[in-house]
Structures are given as structure tokens and as C-alpha cells.
Amino acid sequence: MQPTVPAARIEDVDVKISVLVHAAPYTHQAADTAYQFILAAIAKGHAITRVFFYHDGVNIATRLAVPPADDRNIQKCWSVLAAEHGVDLVVCIAAAQRRGILDEGEARRHGKGDGAANLAPGFRIAGLGQLIEMGIQSDRLVVFGA
């Protein structure tokens, strides 16, 4: 059967890639691998349409994690990626609320008190529609599971 959209070859320049991260930070290497994959893709000249964090992947986005000083800080890696390369980092709202990842608006809406928001810089919270949309808009969607 012919695919409805012609598939781009990965060796083509400027392939539009979107990334779905399911894996929890530190527990699963996939959270690191996704980050390294994106750096490599950008270095090769590809465009990252969006990164969507789902399942325990949303835990990457907490600014409250304090890993040991001799370990990498996964959240900071991603925040720097967003700042330096303008990568759109979207955290699923339903998955985030379940796991206590809140931006200021959500913290206020749920009466969690001032200062409760813990969404790290460079991330934004939005609905699952953003996952479907990035699938529609990119040539490749790559899943990093657990």
C-alpha cells in the first residue's frame, strides 16, 4: 500500500523530525538518548519540529530535581537545548497533572499555593493534540520509550 505522505529518507538534509519521550529521567537511559539524538540531528542539519513528553517522561520537566553534582542534570540539558536551539518542548497536561508537574497557571487553578509551580524553563504544558499535530507536520516521529 502506498503511504499517504511520501516518506523522507533520513539521510536527506533538513528532514523535519519530531520526538516523543515516554521514559522517566535517570531511571531510563531513553531520556538521555532522546536528548543526544536531537543534538546529533541538529548537527546534521535536520529540523526538530517539536518534542512531546508523555507518561513518566513529563518528570524530566521538573525544576526541583537536584541530582548529585557529579551526575548530569537532565532537566538542565533540555532547558539549555530549548534556549540555544529554540526546540519546542511540550509536556502533556494530563500526564503532568497526574505526576505533579505544574506551571504557574495550573498551580493557581488547582489551589496549590504560591511558588508551587515546578515547570522548568524552556518547557510548556499543553494537550495531547500537540502530539498528533507534530506527527502530521513532521517527516519522521521518533519514540523514546521505557
Binding site: P3, T4, V5, A126, G127, G129, Q130, E133, I136, Q137
Partner: peptide
């Protein structure tokens, strides 16, 4: 929230592959 498709005319074939038991994980 910007949850409306920007390119509504594009219809892609999505396959959701389920590999885990219904309970035990989310």
C-alpha cells in the same frame, strides 16, 4: 490552547502499538 490542527487537510495513518499488559503500568 492551540490544540487545533494547523494543517487539517493532511490525514496520516497512525498506528498505536500496545505492548504492555492492561494493569501493572499506566
Amino acid at each position: 490552547m492551540s490544540d487545533t490542527a494547523i494543517a487539517p487537510k493532511i490525514i496520516k495513518k497512525f498506528l498505536y502499538v500496545n505492548r504492555k499488559a492492561p494493569y501493572g503500568t499506566i
